[in-house]
Design a protein around this nucleic acid. Structure first.
Lengths: 349, 349
DNA sequence: TGTTAGCACTCAAAAGAAAAGAGTGCTAAT
DNA sequence: ATTAGCACTCTTTTCTTTTGAGTGCTAACA
């Protein structure tokens, strides 16, 4: 609890008490309450003086004259950065089974969002991992019927893409075999952004068979490979915001819940998070700090997880500013670890 | 406007006026208002007498003594069944392009939900089509690497399922070829529910190669085929309910929006709709009639669409009971037609 | 007999008034 | 530097009053 701040030890104690009390009750906290809540034996009058100072410094404010004080964004920020007790020890202990392992990534992520919401009583989101530096592991074209070919592409992390390609004329069996061979020998192990249009053009020449069909099919393959992994976002507990009066007036509720339904804004949030420096740590956005304007009256806490082979995704919690940051960060860390572990060759299994 | 009801012509006119006025204003409607709103030249006193009768018969009621009348569920029902003017003519006219055609069914459906919400100001849902009587069109196993096989299954309507199968030992190339041959010759053209476990067991014997791997792989294949087509449900405009005071108190709003987030209840609704007799017509559930209890204070209007080859899905609108049924039903019909047309070989293109 | 004017009555919603309570800032004493 | 004391400020709650829409019923009317 280093103090290179301008704040005296005593002010810090009082500020911490104010914030903790406010987190618990949601009510502005007054000087009398603090005399009981802290163990410095001071009268309410003294506390009042300190509070006046803290207000001048911008850490707390009064919703109206003659009400207690509420933490400002700056106050919360200080709290999260320096004042909060982090109970690190517990993290490792409870690292067991919130999630069931299943082979469908989608299911796991859905469940993750749910678990998170159930554990915290806030709104939660989990993004599917994206990675353009992913590598191609296997590719195969098969003839479904006279006019259709199905292309199946397996990427690292066992992400499977596929698509039906409509072809005018039938492709001979030998040609198909040749194509498959060619594609696999050339492309396997390459990362997706290495597979450029130029490369495909060269492939077309090498293909030897100069039929139009082959060209068409190769174009289609290129297209499939580059189709944006449209990031999925799973959400849960959006209606938890109704539990917090400061967010549940019609206006706010509508905005926030819309954001959860439309998901575009959440996607922006994810992008932002992944881009940020401190990736793989935990990020806390308080009020206006949030990259998404809709959530300017909320706090957003996010973490990045990694499903092997550099596929990163984000898990996040959105709630009121008076959020139980400790608990949220702990839960998020736990889940982050589980996700990190679940698809990586985990020593335990 | 046949009258085999016990209601006199005049009572019907008054009831209709009450309902239409209430749909417009959302306020209980009183006798004086009706003297102006209708063109039967009657005094408010006479109207009051008629209203008293209508109330006795259960078509309208007062939210409290000394308020105007509001339609009951029974009243709405009568309105929808007999009183409403249906402007059929317009339907055909505007049957153009609310939706952009794209090859991703998912995108179209997402968009459909959005368009519907934008056009009606209610909450909307669109289910992806499901069909267990779908037939298997093509199946292929391919070796991805030493320990993984990818199984690709193409169903009618070009629905593609796939999964990675983990195998302990490598399957020889010839065996794989044999298996593929066997699977395709036996299963192609069969409907999914014809492919029973017994059939797979027999296949195992025929497989000839009695290695464990083959058995394992076949089991996996059976599993994939039978994995429930998890019906996707796309929603839009859930927050529109905030526009209707009767649904936007915290309690109701939370319940309804949760239903939209969790989607399980919507899925039940879809199942119900598809099962019902009058499929491919339009169904109107008023209040308690709704199969989903959460929506007992709403009206739900649904329609079934068909994406070729018997793949049926549902589109639906959820709003307050005082919903603009005419407009909703018209919009729903339009969209239903568009969806029906968009993937069926449409003569126009 | 069906219709209507008239009137007393009911009840919700809006507006106002009063009381209670929490908390503050400041001053003066310790 | 701390604190007791007090006047003051605002919100919140409660109670009362007023307003207004709408009803049901009765008695008169065509």
């Amino acid at each position: 609890m280093a103090v290179d701040t301008a704040l005296s030890e005593r002010k810090l104690i009082i500020l911490k008490a104010i914030i903790q009390n406010y987190l618990e009750t949601g009510e502005p906290v007054g000087s009398r309450t603090l005399t009981k809540y802290t163990n410095l034996n001071l009268s309410s009058a003294t506390i009042r003086n300190e509070m006046a100072d803290l207000e001048d410094l911008g850490y707390i404010f009064q919703p109206h004259t003659s009400a207690g004080r509420i933490p400002s964004d700056k106050g919360y920020r200080l709290y999260v950065d320096m004042l909060m007790d982090e109970k690190e020890q517990e993290i490792t202990e409870r690292e067991n089974g919130l999630l069931e392992k299943t082979d469908k990534v989608e299911k796991v992520l859905r469940q993750a969002a749910k678990v998170l919401a159930a554990n915290t009583n806030y709104a939660t989101m989990v993004s599917s991992p994206v990675n353009n530096r992913n590598t191609l592991k296997f590719i195969q074209l098969s003839q479904v019927d006279a006019e259709q070919i199905v292309a199946v592409i397996v990427l690292g992390g066992n992400v499977i893409k596929n698509k039906i390609i409509e072809v005018g004329e039938t492709l001979s069996n030998e040609n198909l075999l040749k194509l498959n061979m060619l594609l696999n020998t050339t492309l396997n192990g390459m990362s997706i952004d290495q597979i450029t249009l130029g490369l495909i053009a060269r492939l077309k020449e090498q293909a030897g068979i100069h039929s139009e069909v082959v060209g068409h099919v190769l174009d289609a393959v290129a297209e499939i490979i580059h189709i944006e992994d449209d990031m999925e976002i799973y959400t849960s507990g959006a209606t938890n915001i109704f539990k917090y009066p400061e967010l549940s007036d019609k206006q706010s509720a509508q905005e926030i819940i819309s954001a959860f339904e439309e998901k575009q804004q959440l996607a922006d949030l994810v992008t932002e998070t992944l881009a940020s420096e401190n990736s793989h740590g935990i990020q806390v956005y308080i009020g206006d700090e949030t990259p998404v304007k809709t959530m300017k009256d909320c706090s957003v806490v996010t973490a990045t997880y990694e499903l092997g082979e550099g596929m990163k995704g984000t898990i996040g919690i959105i709630g009121p500013k008076r959020m139980d940051y400790e608990h949220v960060m702990r839960t998020l860390k736990t889940l982050q670890n589980e996700l990190d572990a679940i698809y990586n060759k985990d020593p335990k299994e």
